[in-house]
């Protein structure tokens, strides 16, 4: 059985300018121990869909207006506030893009990790201290006995993100949601951090949802991936399959537009035309239609639903071409 099943999730934001359909009917599954990549550009709804799982959407202006989120068989959208609080951190943990804003600047990192341990794992101070040291060692922070009393600003960006990872894994969660965990750090540090996450989660059997805009990061670290555009999943499948045979014109365009270090240099890049969509004024039919080079008449009238195009590979596109 799947660890997480998201069905037809809809999260809207009610603004003065109109209704922003940030997530508009998204469904996916995540099995135990699996790593799913959620890929898309800013504003495509990938973060909002993850925050919705933990019901962390500020209301107003945001609201989860429809759908179901089953975690170990329980619908997270129906349980009480007390129950969801027990799920957060304990069963589903999350790390964010900017560790500086997610850590409390006036508490030592030892206290911050310890808080989770005392709250969710009923440890006493002494047990907690041992466990914190073990966690810090596990994520590769040198000299943890000394650093346990340091404040967040005394750590570098990469080290802070390691603290976040230690905190997130402190309660042995079943699912780790990593929202752009390496976007704020440098490439050499990015490589270090992702290896830490990969190594630890595979050892602990934690399922991971990796949210990113970086197609390279996804290629290295996930089993399956879902590509989002304008609040919807437009393609999903095994990562190897999607990269080898991308089906949706947006996925094809994204993969074609990035220069690749392993390939000979192209004389010219092939961009995707046009601008990202305004979520308040989405066109009827397919949201990608205005930028699509394969568009047909039906695309402006009816919205395509996900349909199978290969083994576990789905796409939401009307076009049916030989690829």
């Amino acid at each position: 059985m799947s660890l997480l099943q998201v069905r037809d999730l809809k999260t809207y934001f009610y603004t003065d300018a109109g209704v922003v359909r940030a997530v508009d009917g998204v469904s996916y599954d995540l099995k135990e121990g699996e790593t799913l990549g959620l890929v898309g550009e800013s504003g495509c709804g990938k973060s909002v869909s993850a925050l919705s799982i933990l019901r962390l959407i500020a209301n107003p202006p945001g609201k989860i207006v429809g759908g179901e989120i089953f975690f170990e068989g329980k619908d997270l959208l129906k349980i009480s506030e007390k129950e969801i609080r027990n799920i957060r951190g304990n069963h589903i943990a999350m790390i964010f893009q900017e560790p500086m804003t997610s850590l409390n600047p006036v508490l030592t990192i030892g206290l911050q990790i310890g808080e989770a341990l005392e709250l969710h794992r009923n440890m006493n101070k002494k047990e907690a201290r041992e466990e914190i040291l073990r966690l810090l060692r596990m994520v590769g922070i040198p000299d943890p006995e000394r650093r346990i009393g340091d404040y967040p600003h005394q750590f570098s960006g990469g080290m802070r993100q390691r603290v976040m990872i230690a905190m997130a894994l402190s309660c042995n969660p079943k699912l780790l949601i990593a929202d752009e965990p390496t976007t704020a750090v440098d490439v050499t540090i990015q490589a270090q951090l992702l290896e830490v996450v990969k190594e630890l989660t595979s050892r602990l059997g934690t399922a991971v949802m990796l949210i990113t805009h970086n197609l390279g990061v996804v290629a290295r670290h996930v089993n399956r991936m879902a590509v989002m555009y304008a609040g919807r999943i437009i393609e999903q499948g095994p990562a190897a399959e999607v990269y080898a045979h991308p089906w949706h014109p947006y996925t094809i365009g994204l993969l074609a537009s990035v220069p690749r270090l392993d390939k000979p240099r192209k004389e010219r890049l092939v961009p995707i035309d046009g601008q990202p969509p305004n979520l308040i004024l989405l066109p009827p039919g397919c949201s990608f239609m205005p930028r699509c080079s394969y568009r047909m008449e039906i695309c402006s009238k009816e919205r395509p639903e996900l349909r199978p195009v290969g083994d576990g590979h789905f796409t939401a596109c009307w076009a049916n071409m030989e690829r």
């Binding site: 570098s156 990015q190 490589a191 290629a219 290295r220 990035v258 690749r260």
Partner: peptide, 26 residues
């Protein structure tokens, strides 16, 4: 090391790539 840390958007290439993980921080 910088060049080896750049992820390549292709799972097959990535799986066979040697990566130099630099120790420590700047």
């Amino acid at each position: 090391a910088l060049l080896s840390a750049v992820p390549i958007p292709d799972p097959i290439v990535e799986a066979s790539r040697e990566r130099i993980i630099l120790r420590g921080e700047i």
